[in-house]
Design a protein around this nucleic acid. Structure first.
Lengths: 121, 121
DNA sequence: ATTCATGCAAAACCTTTGCAATGCC
DNA sequence: GGCATTGCAAAGGTTTTGCATGAAT
């Protein structure tokens, strides 16, 4: 599947539209709805996951490379976060609410290094 | 403002549409676009904030009562999380990336007590 | 022949915007 | 008069769905 190739080739966060463009570069007649349908299937199979990094479109990537995200509310910069960074939160949520977190789906917003003094005390 | 009254009256997470319905109960001619515009203004003024708890519409509430959210991917149950629960993550993000998190905007997904054995070990 | 995935168009969903009309100072 | 706010309708961006065509088994 060309879609899988596109996902493997670019180990990044691609929107459905970007993936569609990538597939269409080789086979221009592929429709965006086909992209969505296949992404849906692949997600049900556990091959890919999607994450929301902000107010725009969702981004898809291979489930094997799943990780958390920090996104700056000011400048939009995105930081990929290794899972260990969520361990404290995971323990707290577990002991407090018996809740097992999946920290990959929604980004954690905030202010990045370059932006957090702009709001300042 | 009727919108503010609606926000104060129901200390919950209301979508723009719910708030619109509430305002329209008293003054039916108020249009949903006015609700969005006023919510926008109130948000710029720091009176309200909105959060995304899932794939549906955003929910608005008073900024004074801001908090984090855990949402179960399985059953949709929502848990309001006191800020202390994010302290470990906040420290980790700060020391690792010099990133100041705002844990209120996007919910943290996962599995609630009732649902996490459904997926199993 | 039946099944299934595809292309296309259209809808659905949530939100924003253009514009004319209304009200206020 | 001028300025801001509203209602309405229309558009916007993202995703889903209905349906008929066409391929594959």
């Amino acid at each position: 599947m060309l879609l899988l190739r596109a996902l493997f080739e670019s180990q990044g966060h691609r929107t459905a539209e970007e993936l569609g463009a990538e597939v269409q570069a080789k086979t221009p007649e592929v429709h965006i709805s086909t992209i969505y349908r296949n992404l849906d299937d692949l997600e049900r199979l556990g091959v890919v996951v999607h994450a929301h990094l902000g107010h725009g479109p969702a981004t898809y990537h291979l489930a094997a490379g799943a990780h958390g995200h920090f996104v700056c509310e000011e400048c939009g910069a995105m930081i990929e976060a290794p899972d260990e960074i969520f361990e404290g939160l995971a323990r707290a949520a577990k002991s407090r609410f018996d809740f097992d977190i999946n920290p990959h789906h929604f980004a954690v917003l905030g202010r990045c290094r370059g932006c957090h003094e702009a709001v300042g005390p």
